[in-house]
């Protein structure tokens, strides 16, 4: 446990000592800010139009702004995650510091957990900064905060899944660019998998669609915690970290 904390602290420091953290935060805040603006503007315009047409139906901020915002953030996250995970192990391998970690009285699992948790906190920080947008809604409107929290929980779970996969890919190479590109490819793949369901209703298509990380996020965006989705994310995280530890072990055999 102490070792995990040690590794975690080191990783967090190294994220925030480099421009990566700030760059990613700015990038993510900019894009989600744009989406926020677009959705809010659309919401307001629709509201005015409906009033003018005399059909003043109550409109839901959660449904018109927060939900699409969350869906978009979950997709933009796919682009950010490779940049967080690519250095995790690839850099250690390139610098040779992996030899320090592997010859210290520390278990592989402690190293992996420390690194993954640091990446998760980094990602959460990025999400939190973008959360300022939604905080503005509370100033001028009266949105329901519970679905928002559920949505954020979903984002963190989805992020955790992809970060675990990214961590695994990072152990397979000493080149950060390769690690980043491969992680990005996998992230995209896991996103577009749900399109498969629109091309067929066979059981194979269903299985493939089930693996899509974004499909499982949709209920969260609506404010629904479905145990099916939580279990999907948790098992994917476990699977990703398991692959990482196997891969780290195999480094020793192949070296």
């Amino acid at each position: 446990m102490r070792n995990t904390v040690t590794i975690f602290q080191k990783e967090i420091k190294s994220y925030f000592a480099s421009p990566i953290a700030y760059g990613l935060m700015a990038f993510f805040a900019l894009i989600s800010g744009y989406f926020f603006f677009a959705f809010t503007a659309n919401f307001v315009e629709r509201g005015i139009r409906m009033q003018m047409m005399g059909r003043g139906m109550p409109m839901d901020v959660n449904e018109w702004v927060i939900r699409p915002m969350l869906m978009n953030m979950s997709v933009v996250g796919l682009f950010v995650i490779p940049m967080i995970t690519m250095r995790l192990f690839a850099e250690e391998k390139r610098l040779g510091t992996i030899e320090l970690l592997a010859t210290s009285p520390v278990r592989d699992l402690e190293i992996i957990l420390g690194k993954w948790l640091a990446a998760l906190v980094m990602y959460s920080a990025i999400l939190a900064l973008a959360g300022i947008n939604t905080a503005l809604l509370f100033l001028y409107g009266n949105p329901d905060w519970k679905p928002l929290l559920v949505g954020y929980l979903g984002l963190v779970l989805q992020g955790g899944t992809l970060l675990a996969i990214g961590a695994f890919i990072s152990t397979t190479t000493r080149n950060q660019i390769i690690a980043g590109t491969a992680t990005f490819a996998i992230c995209l793949l896991l996103w577009v998998l749900d399109w498969a369901s629109s091309y067929g209703t066979t059981s194979a298509a269903k299985v493939i669609a089930y693996l899509s990380v974004v499909t499982h996020f949709e209920p969260f965006a609506k404010g629904v915690i479905d145990s099916k989705d939580v279990i999907f994310y948790l098992s994917m995280i476990f699977f990703g970290l398991f692959l990482t530890s196997r891969s780290m072990e195999s480094l020793r055999w192949r070296a």
């Binding site: 610098l95 040779g96 510091t97 992996i98 030899e99 320090l100 010859t103």
Partner: peptide, 11 residues
């Protein structure tokens, strides 16, 4: 253990 390349973090 001191490997051939000192295992240090530049940052």
């Amino acid at each position: 253990y001191l490997p051939e390349l000192p295992p240090v973090y530049g940052d």
